[in-house]
């Protein structure tokens, strides 16, 4: 599903450059649940942004499904992102002024679906995540766990092939964190590829394998369960 080769990102600083990612070679198969770990500043979030096509200022090769991302124009990358990728953020990033239902509707509204169709998908999703009773509440009226649940629901509502979860439990206490991780695991079982960033070993264990990042480099690490190998 994902093939990265020699992906690098850097910022000019004075006469030199500061490297955020160095020579990233990475392969992820469809249906995998991959965990990215590493200390702060290792480049995890930057790698997620590149994977999710939120960042287009990098060098190297990136193939996503049958698409050659590194040769695509920014607008084409946005379209790809819209079709195949869902995001879950640490800070939930729900829009405060929209209700739960409206937050769920938001990504659909950017996919030019008709209103009736959108309403039907939103209703299904609310039902699937058992948050029908919360549909007219605003984010500020929900607990952190509930907010992240809505954020996950929003990430999957467009039926993405890949979910990128950047510290999805980082702002939650453990019971809420477990609920979210179980939810992600369920989605993975249903066929969605998931890449998560976490500092928590327990949550990392939900994944099939772990990729360690340090100072922008991938650190060779032991495979977990041997389900997949780097290409």
């Amino acid at each position: 599903m994902i093939q990265m080769k020699g992906v690098e990102k850097s910022y000019p600083v004075g006469a030199g450059r500061t490297w955020v990612l160095r020579r990233i070679d990475l392969g992820i198969r469809e249906g995998e649940f991959v965990t990215i770990m590493g200390p702060s500043g290792a480049g995890k979030s930057t790698l997620m942004a590149i994977l999710g096509m939120l960042d287009s200022a990098w060098e190297g090769e990136y193939n996503f499904l049958e698409y050659t991302v590194h040769k695509m124009k920014p607008q084409q990358r946005v379209e790809l992102h819209k079709r195949f990728i869902g995001f879950v953020f640490q800070q939930y990033h729900l829009l405060d002024d929209l209700t739960v239902a409206e937050n769920l509707d938001l990504p659909l509204s950017y996919r030019d679906l008709k209103k009736a169709e959108r309403q039907s998908i939103v209703a299904d999703t609310l039902d699937r995540f058992q948050i029908v009773a919360k549909k007219d509440l605003y984010p500020s009226q929900l607990s952190g766990g509930q907010q992240q649940l809505v954020a996950v629901a929003r990430a999957v509502i467009g039926n993405p092939k890949l979910i990128l979860a950047d510290e999805p439990t980082g702002s939650l206490h453990s019971s809420q964190g477990k609920m979210i991780m179980d939810m992600l695991k369920d989605l993975n079982r249903q066929g969605t590829t998931i890449i998560q960033v976490t500092h928590n070993e327990n949550w990392a264990a939900y994944g099939d394998r772990v990729i360690q990042l340090l100072d922008g480099w991938i650190v060779p690490t032991e495979e977990k369960r041997g389900v997949a190998r780097e290409a």
Binding site: L95, Y110, R154
Partner: peptide, 16 residues
Amino acid sequence: RRELAVRMALGASRSR
């Protein structure tokens, strides 16, 4: 800015 960034991350185009 945060709201706009989230919208963009969810697929909103700049023109929208």
